[in-house]
Design a protein around this nucleic acid. Structure first.
Lengths: 201, 201
DNA sequence: TAATTTTAGTTAACAGTGTTAACAAAAGTA
DNA sequence: TACTTTTGTTAACACTGTTAACTAAAATTA
């Protein structure tokens, strides 16, 4: 009964080839110009086959959104593991976040920008919760080893993420290509201020 | 020779009616579903007339982007004038910025979000420079009356704007309708930390 | 005023988009 | 081999922005 298994495998490969073709499209022309038709063209199949594997175009985008959050969460975890002090961790994670955003610009724009993440959808992306939990746990640890252990960790998490996302997106809006390396000073400035107010209070 | 003047006036009115119809569309269905055809339908003219008044769809969006930055700049100036202390001004402006974003969600999303402001375009929006200059001047004043007058004002402006935009856009992504009033605590937290590090250092 | 030019506005089309219903062909099962 | 299921295709629908070609109205000139 290897037939059924082969079919599943083929279906999986097909699905992967759709995503791969889509990703190549995105890399060369950006999200805006990704189209079902071009994907179909690239994989040399007719259009409707794509709908056998993805409910609609948004489902394809969702796949990449998940991938993006997964990658970001992994990166943050890895970076965090290189330090023991929560403050150092938060700082290193901030830099890693920045680097991720510009090294994987396409992912980042989908994850936060273009997405106009359809309302409830956001909360249903498990991979996003992963990123959230990495950040929150580190902030909790920082608070635990601080002067004021009564600090609202959720509020601080929200502040942390907002500062990071604000820095990144303002930079992305203004500059086009490479991220001005000087701008990392701004990141450093903002994030060290945040950390200081977090642990010293 | 009142004919030429009447013609100019009519052209102006026509242009205004296009913008008005577009704005109603946006208010009821959002930017994503704004279309030239619907505008033409609303003003009861054929499609190509719109291209006599606007080069393309983006030009219409640009008009609203300018309007948005103008309104925001006006608001910031007005709020600033109610205080004399730069720190108080920066704090009040931060709250005004937040309020503007959610009271004029459509404008804000166009100004910063969807816009994917076509590269150079951003620097050519005079109204945006207006907003920038209001913020920068206040920060300069805060620095002047601080401990460390050597602080890089441009870096601090960038940080200020990034914090604000980050807070707003993270909130907009997560919540759909009304802005959680509790979230203003986060704004307060982040901005008072910023101001403290700006004037005390 | 009549003829001519300019302007304003229309229809119809082009080249795209996402999505789906109806059908044909291939593959698996009895 | 005959039947059923899966797989894939064609062709269409309902949209999108944009523009070329044409007509009708208005303004200008002779």
């Amino acid at each position: 009964m290897g037939i059924a298994e082969r079919k599943i495998r083929q279906k999986e490969e097909f699905r992967a080839s759709i995503l791969e073709a889509a990703w190549l499209q995105v890399l060369s022309d950006g999200w805006q110009s990704l189209s079902i038709r071009k994907i179909a063209d690239a994989i040399e199949y007719s259009i409707p086959v794509i709908y056998n594997h993805f409910e609609n175009k948004e489902a394809i985008l969702l796949e990449f959104t998940k991938e993006g959050f997964q990658k970001l969460a992994d990166t943050l975890l890895e970076v965090k593991s290189r330090y023991s002090n929560p403050s150092e961790q938060l700082e290193a994670m901030a830099h890693a976040y920045w680097d991720f955003a510009f090294e994987h610009k396409e992912y980042y724009q989908l994850m936060f920008g273009l997405g106009i993440p359809a309302c409830e959808m956001v909360n249903q992306i498990a991979e996003m919760k992963l990123m959230t939990s990495v950040m929150i746990s580190t902030i909790q640890e920082a608070i635990a080893s601080s002067n004021n252990t009564e600090t609202n960790y959720f509020l601080k998490y929200h502040t942390y993420l907002s500062i990071l996302h604000g820095l990144v997106s303002i930079e992305m809006i203004q500059k086009v290509g490479k991220p001005d390396p000087e701008k990392k000073m701004i990141l450093q400035d903002a994030i060290s201020g945040f950390i200081k107010s977090l642990v010293i209070n």
